[in-house]
Design a protein around this nucleic acid. Structure first.
Lengths: 139, 139
DNA sequence: TTCATATTTGAACTCATTACAAATATTAAA
DNA sequence: TTTAATATTTGTAATGAGTTCAAATATGAA
């Protein structure tokens, strides 16, 4: 919880209860949640919270670089704490998103062909190991 | 135009006028268009075409693997002919999407950590070379 | 306390995409 | 050629993520 407060302090973001709760959720749940998932969980604890606040906060965190968006599904944005750069795998069958640790030669670069890099996105999509095994045993 | 018909024949897709026109657009315009861009252009030539047909056709092409979706902007899907695998750069200032030729060690792989790969997405976002130069000269 | 500013809230809105049923075109059988 | 079955297209309505915006609330300084 102290770590989270520091993240906000470092970026001069006022640590309101809502913002702290959203960041705390992301720290505890590494499930690449949607806004709806964060909202549904937080509204249990903070009945007055609004979806707009979740959007506002996440957009602010993204601007400051402490939260990273994932565009992997194509239908809604997923969110992740910007800790270490890593790739992702989306299973098109069960919907689960896996973290991948890939030794990508561009992870530490900040320019490419003269363009200035702000975000890097490495996605794979397909059928995950677990679903492949389930499908095989059901055949 | 013959090439395009072959692509559809290979996948047993009936080459209707609408489908051919959509594929033809993608072959001639390498601008990673949205559905709206494709529709606006085609409706000039085919006044009766509907957006739903553009969506239907592109979804069919994607299933068959002859068109690849780009989720790079986060707000709407961009489309590309599935010719050679390559990475993309989105300029957050001018909105242009650049093709990148990157020697990625995973381009030819079809599994990763036991997961079966169907799609690979490599995106970079930031400020493009052209915008950087404009910004500098205006300072 | 009072005023100014920042944040949150909720309703209305935009826009991409899908669902669906009617209309049209195509193909095969009689 | 007719008829019937199937595939495709069309247009409207619905869905759902995300934004806009003004009112309400909280915060902080004078």
């Amino acid at each position: 919880m102290n770590e989270i407060k520091k993240m906000l302090d470092n970026e001069n973001i006022k640590p309101t209860y809502e913002r702290l709760s959203i960041l705390q959720y992301l720290e505890k749940n590494h499930n690449h949640p949607t806004v709806a998932m964060i909202y549904e969980e937080l509204v249990k604890k903070i009945p007055t919270i609004s979806k707009t606040t979740v959007y506002n906060s996440l957009n602010l965190f993204m601007e400051k670089g402490i939260v990273a968006p994932l565009y992997i599904t194509g239908s809604e944005v997923r969110y992740d704490l910007s800790t270490s750069q890593h790739h992702h795998f989306l299973c098109e069958q069960c919907g689960k998103i896996y973290d991948l640790t890939i030794d990508c030669p561009y992870l530490n670069k900040n320019t490419i062909e003269g363009h200035q890099i702000k975000q890097k996105h490495g996605y794979f999509r397909g059928i995950c190991k677990s679903c492949l095994e389930k499908d095989k045993s059901q055949k």
